[in-house]
């Protein structure tokens, strides 16, 4: 286990820039997530850290040791590929044991460590199987065991859950979280799925087109994003322009914005942070109502725009289309940085 730092890392493919001059650091034992849309350079960053892609410029240090320039086999980094990249001609046990064999770990010890790693991911029964005889979720866990068994300084995970169906994804997400809490291995996790990022991470870096847009702990980033991009990427939101009247900042439905910073023009309001009350004279009107079970999603039409509002599905009487509503804020929304709107 060790800390990781990237300094001024850059990577281009031909004249396309995959990663723009980028700094990043992870503390020892931290779980950091790179969150961003497909093609924003996440995989490229992982590959440069693992040593299977070369940065054009910059420095990579693991545990203080400079590793850019070292071949991948000299870095002691565990990488779980998005495609898992299991060795198809080897059994599960041989896959997991490959790294130990390369490190010339004595056979008896290797056998014990393989068994322990397979137990860790609950695959002890499958040691003698071949990868193609396993389900996607099981293959994913083999890849994880294979990356962990060598006790890497750093664990890199490239969208490890993206090829699994939703139910399995939730299950494995929990397993992964518990595993990391137990092992406390420094982890860099890559995903385009914001709920994965929030469920797993100590800290999230939001990426866009090869740059880091914003960073923060999951809750802070969700509740108080500074940029419109992060606000929208972390979940549904209403980016709302404040109306200035008599030196006061007003929300589109006429409510005065509490403690509004004078210079902020936009705020991000999460759908669940708006309360609705039926009121025939209210400023809003329901134009769509979608019952999702745990929640109900409404589309509320105002004079100039429409808003998304989410309410709990528990016990409420659904507001039908056409119902007039009054709106009010449940929490003080956070202003977005100027210019990013």
């Amino acid at each position: 286990m060790a800390e990781l730092s990237l300094t001024s890392i850059r990577k281009t493919f031909g004249d396309a820039t995959a990663v723009e001059t980028l700094d990043l650091s992870i503390a020892n034992g931290e779980f950091l997530t790179l969150l961003g849309p497909s093609g924003c350079g996440k995989t490229t960053i992982l590959r440069m850290i693992a040593g299977i892609a070369m940065p054009d410029a910059g420095e990579i240090r693991i545990g203080g040791r400079r590793v850019d320039g070292l071949p991948p086999e000299g870095r002691n980094v565990g990488l779980v590929f998005q495609s898992y990249a299991l060795f198809p001609h080897m059994t599960v046990a041989a896959n997991v044991g490959f790294g130990l064999k390369m490190r010339k770990v004595p056979r008896r010890e290797a056998e014990d460590r393989i068994a322990a790693a397979l137990d860790l991911v609950d695959l002890g029964r499958f040691a003698a199987r071949y990868p193609r005889e396993l389900s996607g979720g099981q293959q994913q866990r083999v890849a994880l065991a294979r990356a962990l068994v060598t006790e890497p300084d750093l664990l890199l995970l490239d969208e490890p859950l993206s090829n699994l169906d939703a139910k399995l994804r939730d299950q494995l997400r929990e397993d992964l979280r518990r595993l990391q809490e137990r092992l406390r291995v420094t982890t860099l996790y890559v995903t385009h799925d914001q709920s994965e990022a929030m469920a797993l991470s100590d800290r999230i870096l939001v990426m866009r087109a090869g740059r880091i847009v914003e960073e923060g702990a999951p809750e802070a980033l969700y509740r108080r994003p500074r940029t419109r991009f992060a606000a929208e990427f972390l979940g549904q939101t209403n980016v709302v322009r404040l109306i200035r009247r008599d030196g006061m900042a007003m929300l589109p439905w006429g409510e005065a914005m509490p403690d509004a910073q004078s210079d902020s023009a936009y705020v991000s309001i999460r759908p669940e942070d708006i309360a609705l009350r039926p009121d025939p004279h209210g400023p809003g009107r329901i134009t769509a109502c979608t019952f999702l079970g745990p929640t109900v999603e409404y589309r509320v039409e105002l004079a100039e725009r429409s808003l998304r509002v989410r309410q709990t599905g528990s016990g409420t009487v659904l507001l039908t289309e056409g119902t007039g509503v009054a709106l009010s804020l449940l929490v003080t929304p956070h202003p977005l940085a100027e210019g990013m709107a």
Partner: peptide, 15 residues
């Protein structure tokens, strides 16, 4: 051969 499989071997310590 899947390129990632070859690269995976490298990250696992194989020259």
């Amino acid at each position: 051969i899947n390129r990632d499989v070859v690269l995976a071997a490298r990250t696992l310590g194989a020259g």
